Simulated scan of single mutants.
Amino acid sequence: MSREQRPNPRLNEDLLFNVAPGGPPRYSRLSNRPVQYLTVVDRHGQVIGYAWANDEDDAAGWVVRKAGGDEAFNEGSVWAIKLHDAKARAIVPSAALAEMIQESDPTKSSHVVPGSLTEAPNVEAVRRLANPE
């Protein structure tokens, strides 16, 4: 006699995901308005990514340059954390960029390119700059 194994009924149930309120404050990652952005390079002068901001949408973010590889990704986390910390202190996005410029140190593993504060028509333009297809 053969015994047919039945699948566990719990494996057929739909998973329910409930959004939990709270968590750390974050800038919005979306803005269709003009944004300011900074170019960030590694110690060899290679672009690793861009920090961008828009005050009207309370939006800011970090865009890593994928061509920079793992080093760009790892170094970029420092700049993303700077944005998270600025939001936690209730600093407007453009002031967060200003802090990044002021605190940038060329002797560190990555830094803001002096004079690189520029405007783009929107976040997508910065993303295309970082990762042209």
Rank of each mutant, 00 (worst) to 15 (best):
L117D: 08
E103C: 05
V64N: 08
N18V: 14
G45K: 01
D58G: 11
E99Q: 11
P24S: 15
G69W: 07
V126M: 03
P9K: 04
S116W: 04
K66D: 09
G68N: 09
L117Y: 05
H111T: 08
E71F: 00
A67K: 15
R128T: 10
I101T: 06
V35P: 05
A88H: 02
L38I: 04
D105I: 10
A20I: 13
G61V: 06
R33G: 03
A51Y: 11
G49P: 13
F73A: 14
D42I: 07
A88P: 02
Q102E: 12
P9L: 03
F73C: 00
R128V: 15
V19S: 15
G22P: 03
H84K: 01
R29Q: 12
A51H: 09
L97A: 01
R89F: 02
V35I: 11
E124T: 09
F73R: 13
S2F: 09
G76W: 04
T107M: 11
G61Q: 07
P106A: 07
R89A: 12
P121C: 12
N131Y: 00
A125S: 12
D55I: 11
S109Y: 00
S31F: 04
S2D: 10
L15H: 02
A80R: 10
E99P: 01
D85W: 10
A88F: 07
V47F: 03
E99A: 10
D57Q: 00
E119P: 03
I91R: 09
S116F: 00
Q102F: 04
V40Q: 06
A72H: 00
Y50K: 04
T107Q: 15
R29G: 12
P121M: 14
R89H: 04
A53I: 08
S110L: 04
G69L: 09
N122W: 02
T107F: 10
Y37W: 12
S2Y: 01
V126F: 02
K66A: 06
L11T: 13
A60M: 03
N32F: 08
L83Q: 04
K82F: 05
A51I: 13
S77H: 08
S109Q: 12
P34K: 06
G76K: 05
I91Q: 13
I48L: 15
W79C: 06
N131T: 02
E103W: 05
D55H: 05
V35C: 09
D105R: 10
T107S: 15
V64G: 11
A95D: 15
P34G: 06
E13Y: 01
L16S: 06
S77F: 09
A90I: 06
Y50A: 03
Y37C: 07
V41A: 04
V78Y: 15
A96L: 03
A95Q: 13
R10F: 12
G49M: 10
R65A: 14
I101N: 00
E124A: 14
S31C: 07
L117G: 02
R10I: 04
G69N: 01
A60K: 01
V19I: 15
A80Y: 05
D85Y: 13
E4P: 09
